[in-house]
Design a protein around this nucleic acid. Sequence first.
DNA 1: GTCTATAAATAGATAGAC
DNA 2: GTCTATCTATTTATAGAC
Lengths: 208, 208
Amino acid sequence: MRRGYATGQARRERILAAALLEFAENGYRGASLARIAERVELSQAGLLHHFRSKERLLVAVLEHRDELDARRFDLASAGGVDALHAMAAVVGHNARVPGLVQLFSVISGEAVTPGHPGHEWARRRYRRLRAQVAAALRLGVERGEFRAGLDTEAHADRLIAMMDGLQTQWLIDPERVDMAAVFRGYVDDLVALLAPPAAPGPGTAAAP
Amino acid sequence: MRRGYATGQARRERILAAALLEFAENGYRGASLARIAERVELSQAGLLHHFRSKERLLVAVLEHRDELDARRFDLASAGGVDALHAMAAVVGHNARVPGLVQLFSVISGEAVTPGHPGHEWARRRYRRLRAQVAAALRLGVERGEFRAGLDTEAHADRLIAMMDGLQTQWLIDPERVDMAAVFRGYVDDLVALLAPPAAPGPGTAAAP
DNA sequence: GTCTATAAATAGATAGAC
DNA sequence: GTCTATCTATTTATAGAC
């Protein structure tokens, strides 16, 4: 029953997990293939048999995480106010997995440099996130949960920026910053702000 | 007239400027003392005569920038709505100095790692920024520009997070993200949101 | 698929001459 | 204050045996 394949896959996943830790702790530039190999009890040359270079390994780690996260968080299915609350829930979840948050913060920070191997990944990722969040906001407009004519792309940029910015503050000073609560406050403010102009009476807004 | 001192100081400042470029382009871990030395036409050993280690050089660069910025942006003097507009102006200014923005983004990203030489600097910096912004917001409350009882520290965290998050997006994809405009939108929304409950008529709010 | 050995480059830091 | 020379350590990647 394909033992070779199964163990090969298992090995690959163990390497990805170990690399994630190393990249999160030291960034791409500070990471060492030797230390990653050590974590999976493999020689450095053995590690490079599975991933031909440090650069490819980083990209593999990032894409692997994106795959897993895409399954976990399906923002596209929600819309409007629900989507905003879903984002707040994601932040709440993130506060329990500092290692993952650190990976994305460190790599995103490094990746602002044009030559960085994560640069293209980061660009694609932000474009994709913005499109998803903006679509969710448009859905809210169509449903009448949000007022018409709002700049959904600008709000999407801001929601993503808020998540990232709070993550950095939280990682640097966890005791002082309650990332989840502060983000929730943003969402609450936004729900109030984006609500359509007050209807004459309750219930009338929902009637066609 | 103290030529030796003057040239010594000038040399130091040239080193700081060169180091800033190198750290901004490659981060702390990716930076090379040899390349910095080359930029100021000095040997690597000669460079280390002025700053005893790479770590001290980074800290010197960061503190030097903080000093200069503290003179340029005096948020403490403004308060309330003026302070918010001053922050928007800072973002507008930042959009014209990508190198500086990149330095702070890259180093802040790396510095989430506990062992990083910029970690303590980043923590102090965020605490200071938060205190300054929160104080400016409180001033707005006292003046009656903002409604009473708002969570000034949470709003300070969010304003700073928004600046940082938009900077990252802008650096990674400059054509797509208009950092200054998107931030201005946030400030405008905030001004509306934080305004005190509507007074009976215009002008009455200002009367004691 | 995993290893040892090694290449080839670069790093930060120090010693000591001038 | 600046240099050359050197030390020591570490890096990624490759070659080739098993």
